[in-house]
Design a protein around this nucleic acid. Structure first.
Lengths: 150, 150
DNA sequence: GCATCTTTGACCTTCCTTGACCTTACAACC
DNA sequence: GGTTGTAAGGTCAAGGAAGGTCAAAGATGC
């Protein structure tokens, strides 16, 4: 299967580059004789933030895709949180989670405040109250993922 | 890519000049073998006010372009950002702002990622697209405030 | 046989590069 | 003091070079 082959290839290149890699989508697709979007597919299905990768890209002339592998260590802990959040979460519970993370030294005090602000009722004031906890859960999940990544 | 090269060049010249620089567009374009408007493009895409630069220019004989890297106090800087956000902001612009803050050492790389995640389209996926930028602005503002506080 | 994962291709968005044309400043000349 | 010539920089639109997205068709596994 092409996907596996490409994934293995990227994995190897990551090893060679000490966990960092920049590639050109078109160039690579050309070399492998596949369509460019295949590369996109592999990256989006295999090198996800959940699995500890950070992806950045730039379009236009000289564009490229950057893949960075982050060491998993405290990430399992984070993953636990991520799953625990569920579909919906209120402000108080969010803060409780954050305090837990801070208490365990997984995030700094400042990070706690930033995350609390981003998920506060103040930030979500314009969202109908009955939808607020759902949106908060989504934002919080993205935050947890970002904390795992770096 | 030419753009990156020129940007790097200007950056260096700014460092040499303690954050100030005067250049002649035609002369520089000539030296680099590119069209003059390329210089304009680099300046307008890379050395923007959002990223903390002030641009002045003079036309006519002996004309020049003046680039100054602003340094403001932390809170001035933050306040500047807070005001600049306005009612609505898209994902890309948000990231540009955050990168500026990180570039100036006002927030850490991790904080950048957290804030970017909290304001990402992914986090706001369940919000109708036409309202997303408004909600993002509100979340971002709360984040900026939290950054000023600690 | 249904669900899930792959593969492909058409179309979109972003970014870079170039060139034609516009505006402004200054200076020389009447 | 106007007029005009020339030397800057400003603007904008077109074209090209990437990567992004998404839906449909094809495999594959249970």
């Amino acid at each position: 299967m092409l996907t596996d082959y490409i994934a293995k290839m990227i994995e190897e290149m990551l090893n060679e580059g000490n966990g960092t890699l920049e590639l050109q989508r078109n160039e690579m697709a050309n070399r492998l004789g596949c369509v460019p979007s295949q590369i996109s597919y592999v990256i989006s299905s295999r090198f996800t933030p959940e699995r500890g990768y950070v992806i950045e890209s730039r379009r236009g002339g000289g564009g490229c895709i950057r893949i960075v592998r982050k060491q998993m260590s405290r990430n399992e802990y984070m993953m636990h949180f991520f799953c625990a959040i569920g579909e919906s979460i209120d402000e108080g519970e969010t803060i409780a989670y954050l305090k837990n993370l801070a208490g365990n030294g997984l995030i700094s005090e400042r990070e706690l405040h930033i995350a609390a602000a981003a998920t506060s009722n103040a930030a979500l004031a314009s969202i109908p109250p009955d939808r607020r906890n759902t949106v908060r859960a989504q934002i919080f999940k993205q935050i947890i993922l970002s904390m795992m990544a770096v």
